[in-house]
Design a protein around this nucleic acid. Structure first.
Length: 232
DNA sequence: TCATTAATGTGTT
DNA sequence: AACACATTAATGA
C-alpha cells in the first residue's frame, strides 16, 4: 500500500478524523498494516494483547460466549471503527472475542504508541474519549432494549442501527452489505435463530425489510414508523 | 459440476 | 424459545 493510500485511509478512521496532515503522518509512522482472511480470530480473552485495531476494510464481530456456548454479539465493527483492549484503556471488557466476518484490512497500534500519540496530539485523546463515550451510550441503549423490549422491537432497532451504520442507500431502501445470517442477528438481539426467521418474515410481508441470500434491505422510513408505533 | 455443509423455513410442543 | 425436520443456498474440491 502506498504512503498516500495509507494516509487517506487513516483519515477515515473515526479516531483520526480531522487530524492535520502532519498529525496523520505521525500516526502513520507507528501504525502497522495487517490483513486477515474471513474467520480469523483477532481478539481472544485468553491471549491479551495491548493493541488498538483500526478497521479499514471489512467487518469484525465482537462477541461473548457463555459457559453453555451461547454467544452474544456485543458489537459489529466496520470501516472507520476501532476496537481493541489496551492496558489502561479499553474499548471493551477484555472478555470478548473478535472474529473477522469478512476478509479484513486493519491497522494496528500498540498501546504505548497510542498513548504517546495522545500526549503529543491532544486531538487524538479527545477523539478517543468521544469514541468511548459513544460506545457507552450505545451499550446503555442496548441494555434498555434487551431488558424492556420484545424481540420484534429489538430487531427493528438493530436493523435501523445496522442500516445507519453500515448501510448503502439503494432506491428507497438501505442495503446492509454485511453478510449477516439469521443466527448472527439472533446473537445480536438475544433470541433464537427461528424467532429471527419468523420476525423477519413478518417484517418482510409488511414491507419493512427485504431479505435475500444473506443480504438485507431496510425501509428506514417504515422501520422508524413501526418503532414509534410499537416501542416497548 | 457435484457433493457436502451452511442457512433458512416451518410445524409442533 | 426449543426442537425436529424439510428445503434451499453457498462453498469448495
Amino acid at each position: 500500500m502506498g504512503a498516500v493510500d495509507k494516509l487517506a485511509y487513516l483519515s477515515q478512521i473515526d479516531l483520526f478524523r480531522q487530524l492535520s496532515r502532519e498529525e496523520l503522518q505521525a500516526v502513520d509512522r507507528v501504525a502497522a498494516v495487517q490483513v486477515a482472511p474471513r474467520g480469523t480470530l483477532l481478539l481472544d480473552p485468553a491471549r491479551f494483547e495491548p493493541v488498538l485495531y483500526l478497521v479499514k476494510r471489512g467487518y469484525v464481530r465482537l462477541y461473548r460466549v457463555t459457559p453453555e456456548g451461547r454467544q452474544l454479539t456485543v458489537s459489529l465493527v466496520g470501516p472507520g471503527n476501532v476496537f481493541g483492549e489496551l492496558e489502561g484503556l479499553s474499548t471493551g471488557t477484555r472478555r470478548s472475542f473478535g472474529e473477522a466476518v469478512t476478509d479484513v484490512l486493519l491497522c494496528v497500534l500498540r498501546d504505548a504508541d497510542l498513548e504517546r500519540l495522545m500526549r503529543a496530539y491532544p486531538e487524538v485523546a479527545v477523539r478517543m474519549v468521544r469514541v468511548l463515550s459513544e460506545r457507552l451510550r450505545e451499550l446503555e441503549e442496548l441494555l434498555e432494549r434487551v431488558a424492556l423490549s420484545n424481540v420484534r422491537t429489538r430487531l427493528l432497532h438493530l436493523l435501523l442501527k445496522l442500516a445507519e451504520r453500515f448501510g448503502t442507500p439503494e432506491g428507497r431502501l438501505v442495503q446492509v452489505g454485511v453478510g449477516l445470517t439469521h443466527q448472527d442477528l439472533a446473537d445480536m438481539v438475544g433470541c433464537s435463530r427461528e424467532t429471527v426467521t419468523l420476525t423477519l418474515g413478518e417484517l418482510g410481508r409488511e414491507g419493512v425489510v427485504r431479505t435475500a441470500r444473506r443480504r438485507l434491505w431496510v425501509d428506514v422510513e417504515r422501520a422508524r414508523a413501526r418503532l414509534a408505533l410499537e416501542s416497548f
